[in-house]
Design a binder for these strands. Structure first.
Lengths: 213, 213
DNA sequence: TGTACATCAGTGAACGCGCGTTCACTGATGTAC
DNA sequence: TGTACATCAGTGAACGCGCGTTCACTGATGTAC
């Protein structure tokens, strides 16, 4: 607040925002190697701080991982919202609602492919997938991936594409489908495929959801 | 071969079949805590043998885990085949083919619920999902889960339910859907649900696949 | 059938590793007077 | 505006842990003669 610190912040004694720095380091590690790669000591190393300094901000390693994981879920939401932006409303409400659900799917798969480490960290930390709707896991616009699926389905109901009686629980069907494809893409038999091939598989899957829902 | 060993085999010097014993111990650990819980030293402990004895049978810990993981994939195949058995052909070829695909789904989800640790070990060890069709990962009847999906889809084509031009790659759609639901059930928001609720969710998802494929 | 011997599946002890975590501490900071 | 002081975010050293893995070895087994 008062003085200008050394430009090369390595020598900083009172760290500017250590908590944030640790989370960022954790996200970086997650990006490189998934949740298992989020190592408390390494996070303090990257923040240029002694190992135990982390305990001023997190009760233990799991607490850090949880925050990192929440952050990753937020990134997933951001990626989906970016897909929304790439397909602005055309005025045809029905087509727009359909496109919205597709955007959830393509954004989700896009995130899995572009950031497999963050994807894994977002979705395979215990209790994170389970509470994927919690506000703490929201993206920059305040929404979680789970809420975005719901939003798209609501739009489908509002435009009459989806019968209201099928709405309850439909997010689980949509989500399971897209989540499964994401897993197959990052860890499964679809891993080695080229981008166009994965795009094609995604399109086919979303067609199936569209028809089947 | 020659002498009768102590009944309490703890003192055995030449172990009967250590390799098999280690794999079984590994599967047991996987059952309790997933792939991360498969610990080489603990496997030797359970087999009543010194830690390094394992290196007579596996080059390293990863080699053990890989075999354990393959075994788990085989169990998944067995579980699906059990579901086939529970729904024997009725004579209506079209209905039978449909039921076969459903059985893949319900068997898959059943395995995830009954054996979450084995499920995780089967499907989230690197390279295992990717090579899920390899013969080394077959169940008791010599088939892998991946092949079973294909079999069901072939039957759908043969009976005219599924247009042949949609057959190529269809296993990825079917598999992704069911795999995603499995993940949501063991780790996700569907975890706490009662059996009937999960059955209902499974049925709805399979209806969607049936309609959408 | 008996004996000598090579094999190799096991032993027992030890290693280095990086981890998470705890301890007693220190000294820059902001605040009260 | 200057000084005394309490705070508490950081330091530095150390711990115990269980892991995977390596070493030199031993002695039960099956086989050749």
């Amino acid at each position: 607040m008062s003085d200008e610190r050394a430009v090369n912040a390595r020598t900083t004694y009172r760290h500017g925002d250590l908590r944030e720095a640790l989370v960022e380091a954790g996200v970086e590690m997650a990006r490189e190697g998934g949740p298992r790669a989020v190592v408390l000591r390494e996070a303090t190393r990257r923040a240029g701080v002694s190992p135990n300094a982390a305990y001023r901000h997190f009760t233990d390693r799991d607490a850090l991982l949880q925050v990192v994981s929440d952050t990753c879920l937020g990134f997933a939401a951001d990626r989906i919202e970016a897909e929304f932006d790439a397909h602005p409303p055309t005025g045809d409400a029905e087509a727009d609602a359909r496109m919205m659900l597709r955007s959830v799917g393509t954004g989700y798969i896009g995130f899995a492919r572009e950031e497999p480490g963050l994807f894994r960290t977002a979705f395979s930390v215990p209790d994170n997938l389970q509470r994927a709707g919690d506000a703490s896991k929201a993206g920059r616009r305040g929404r979680t991936p789970f809420q975005l699926v719901g939003l798209a389905l609501d739009a489908l109901v509002a435009t009459g594409v989806l019968p209201p009686e099928r709405r309850p629980g439909a997010e689980f069907q949509a989500w399971a489908t897209v989540h499964g494809l994401g897993m197959l893409v990052i860890d499964g038999p679809l891993r080695g495929l080229t981008d166009p091939m994965i795009d094609a598989a995604t399109e086919r899957l979303l067609d199936m959801v569209d028809r089947g829902l």
